[in-house]
Structures are given as structure tokens and as C-alpha cells.
């Protein structure tokens, strides 16, 4: 009797652990992600009076490596070293999640998108970043010039010109009810809509 109970309990424990691991390994619901991303704002404020944002790192990198007497890059970037730690953790966290917390299966995508992408030869959804597009062979082609170099340039230039990126404006700024951040967020979306619907389909067929 006692033996059976113990067996049942162990079995139950194993079963629960199994379910839990499966739950962690399957893609997370948007509400879970939203809560955790939102909590980053108070976490950084309470841990050390730091305002959440990521694109500032790109500026600190300029200030640290190539300030070139440009006033915009002449400030004490060492006071923002915490942000390098934050993105360092971000890279490590992404690595750990991809290595140990991922089920191997294709990314679930909308049939219309799958259709359109198939016409441009993108049929592999096994990774979050389409490997048929973002690969070394494409790097030195017209496609690569746009998807890597020009795309990245627009992100870096635009984020600083706008005074923040999605994390700074859309998360931190909107959390603090700043209307200029709302303006920026709206124009992020405007650019994105134009780009995804009119420019990306063209670039995919280069």
C-alpha cells in the first residue's frame, strides 16, 4: 500500500515535470511574452535606475570605438556599460533558448505568406531566420546588399534619428505615456507596412 502510494506520487511528479518541460519547449503565447517584456521596464528601473532601451547600445559602440571628435559621440559611454551587459545577456539567453529550449519543428506561418514566399524560393521554415535568405552565399549579391547592409543601415540610422527604437519608444516611451513616442511608434508601423507590402516582395525577387 505504502509502496504503491510512493510509486504513484513519483509517477505523478515525473508526469508533471514532463508536461512542464513540454510547455516551456513549445512556442510561448503572446500574452506570456508581453508580460515578461513589460516587466523588463520596472526590473531595470528598480535594479539600478536604468531606462530600458536597446538601440542606444549601437551609439555606445560608436562612442567607445570611433568617436572621431563628433560631438554626438563624445560622452562618458562608460556610464552606460550596464547596457552592454544587458545585450551580452540577451545574446547568451537567445543562445541557451535556441540550444536547449526549442522543439525541432518548422515555424508555423500564415498560408498566404507561405505562398508568396514560395514564389521567391523561400520554403524552409525550420528556423526563425529564413536560412534561404540570410546566408553567407547571399551576402555578396544584390539581395544581400539590401537585406543585410541597407536594411541594417536603415535600422541603425532611423533608430537614432527617431531618438529610440521599438524598445525605447514603443515600450519604455509608451509605458511613460509620452506622446512623441506614440508618434514615433506610429511611423515605425507606417514604414513597416510600406516596406513589407511594397518593398520586400520586390527585393525578394532580385
Amino acid at each position: 500500500m505504502i509502496y504503491e502510494l510512493k510509486y504513484l506520487r513519483e509517477n505523478y511528479f515525473q508526469h508533471t515535470m514532463f508536461e512542464l518541460i513540454n510547455l516551456v519547449k513549445s512556442p510561448w503565447h503572446w500574452s506570456v511574452a508581453g508580460i515578461l517584456v513589460g516587466l523588463t521596464v520596472p526590473a531595470l528601473l528598480i535594479l539600478g535606475n536604468k531606462h530600458f532601451g536597446i538601440s542606444a547600445n549601437l551609439r555606445h559602440a560608436c562612442a567607445a570605438c570611433l568617436p572621431a571628435n563628433i560631438p554626438f559621440f563624445n560622452y562618458e559611454w562608460k556610464k552606460e556599460v550596464w547596457n552592454f551587459f544587458f545585450v551580452g545577456g540577451l545574446i547568451l539567453g537567445a543562445f541557451l533558448a535556441a540550444q536547449f529550449l526549442q522543439t525541432s519543428g518548422p515555424v508555423d506561418i500564415h498560408p498566404n505568406l507561405a505562398n508568396d514566399l514560395a514564389q521567391s524560393g523561400i520554403t524552409d521554415y525550420s528556423s526563425l531566420v529564413p536560412q534561404q535568405l540570410f546566408n553567407l552565399e547571399n551576402l555578396f549579391t544584390w539581395k544581400g546588399l539590401f537585406f543585410f547592409v541597407i536594411g541594417g543601415f536603415l535600422v541603425g540610422f532611423g533608430a537614432r534619428y527617431a531618438g529610440g527604437c521599438t524598445s525605447g519608444h514603443a515600450i519604455s516611451g509608451l509605458s511613460n505615456l509620452q506622446w512623441p513616442s506614440l508618434v514615433a511608434t506610429i511611423f515605425f508601423m507606417v514604414g513597416g507596412f510600406v516596406s513589407a507590402n511594397l518593398i520586400v516582395p520586390f527585393l525578394l525577387n532580385l
Binding site: 536597446i54 537585406f147 527604437c165 514604414g191 507596412f193
Partner: peptide, 17 residues
């Protein structure tokens, strides 16, 4: 700036984070 950022965001499929 935000519009330029948006153009890049959809192309790269990624913002800085």
C-alpha cells in the same frame, strides 16, 4: 527617422534587440 527605421525593420525582420 521612425519611417526610415520602419522600412529597415520589415526588411531585416528585426529591430535592434
Amino acid at each position: 527617422g521612425a519611417t526610415l527605421f520602419g522600412l529597415g525593420w520589415a526588411i531585416t525582420g528585426a529591430c535592434p534587440g
